[in-house]
Design a protein around this nucleic acid. Structure first.
Length: 279
DNA sequence: GATAATGTTGGTCG
DNA sequence: ACGACCAACATTAT
């Protein structure tokens, strides 16, 4: 569920809510497998009394820099979310981990589908260094993008979703970027012309920036859907051009948007605007 | 009421 | 190197 813009929004809200500088008095784990690399007992022991020094984002990971050289990496996968409470209370229905802070607040982590993972480590680089370029950083240049996709015969959409190539793009923003760039999601990366590569490069940056500015995409009304720490829903769902618009007219040419499956992911595109048969 | 689909990622197996 | 498929899960839509 949360892609780069949603994770970025959450990181910002966690900072804005003054978590930085607070100390973790105690941790409670309700679902063991939410902690990827430690048993709950070890996790609770190691995180106790650590101070939160910073909260940032790398790809789709939330990065909590803690005291004494420790880092907490949180990947929300499909349904992970954070909530902050001022008072003790029974665990919420999908609450998996809870951190008690020294200012009396409780940071709750909920994850309906239990796919999300927390990693508490002194060596975060082993995870963070193997993921790809940050698309909203200066390192993501047109030249770097060209280098990334040249000679890659694989389909362009699965490539965009590959976190080892570019970090943070998920199913929504991949479809949106390809529509903006007028590129068919199934065509081979290496087959793209220079003009198409540049258009796609600009589209990736554009759709991600728009997502961040609109504080993320919250689809549907269900509780499983993305909302930020404060419970606020994003607004980007109202700006989407193709994602989940199957059988509706393309905003550019009026053709009915199609939905296919690519790399086991629902994929939405306009069969006329995005018709580059180069493959 | 059964079945398919869901925004993620890691593994296996050709 | 890649793609196809499965697995981890709970819920909603059909």
């Amino acid at each position: 569920m949360p892609e780069l813009p949603e994770v970025e929004t959450i990181a910002r809200e966690l900072r804005e809510t003054q978590l930085i500088g607070k100390t973790i008095d105690r941790a409670v784990v309700f679902w063991e497998r939410s902690i990827a690399n430690l048993i709950p007992k070890q996790f609770s022991k190691e995180i106790k009394n650590k101070t939160i020094q910073n909260i940032t984002r790398r790809g789709k990971y939330l990065v909590f820099t803690l005291s004494d050289g420790w880092t907490l990496l949180v990947h929300l996968r499909m349904t992970g979310k954070f909530m902050i409470d001022v008072k003790e209370g029974d665990p919420h229905s999908h609450e998996r981990v809870r951190l008690y802070l020294n200012d009396g607040r409780i940071l709750r982590y909920e994850d309906q589908r239990k796919f999300g993972k927390w990693t508490l480590t002194q060596h975060p680089e082993s995870i963070l260094d193997v993921i790809g370029l940050e698309p909203l950083d200066t390192e993501f240049t047109l030249k770097a993008f060209k280098h990334l996709i040249k000679d890659k015969k694989r389909q362009i959409k699965p490539l965009l979703l590959d976190q080892h190539m570019i970090a943070g793009i998920g199913n929504i923003y991949a479809d949106e970027a390809l529509w903006e760039a007028r590129i068919h999601p199934a065509c081979s990366a290496a087959s793209l012309s220079d003009v198409e590569v540049k258009a796609l490069y600009q589209a990736i940056i554009m759709v991600l920036k728009a997502g961040v500015e609109n504080i993320g995409t919250s689809l549907g009304a269900a509780r499983a859907n993305y909302f930020s720490v404060s419970g606020r829903r994003g607004n980007n769902q109202y700006k989407l051009k193709v994602f989940r618009r199957e059988s509706l007219p393309c905003f550019r040419c009026g053709t009915i948007i199609e939905k296919i499956v690519l790399a086991q992911r629902g994929t939405h595109f306009c069969p006329v605007c995005q018709l580059n048969l180069s493959k």
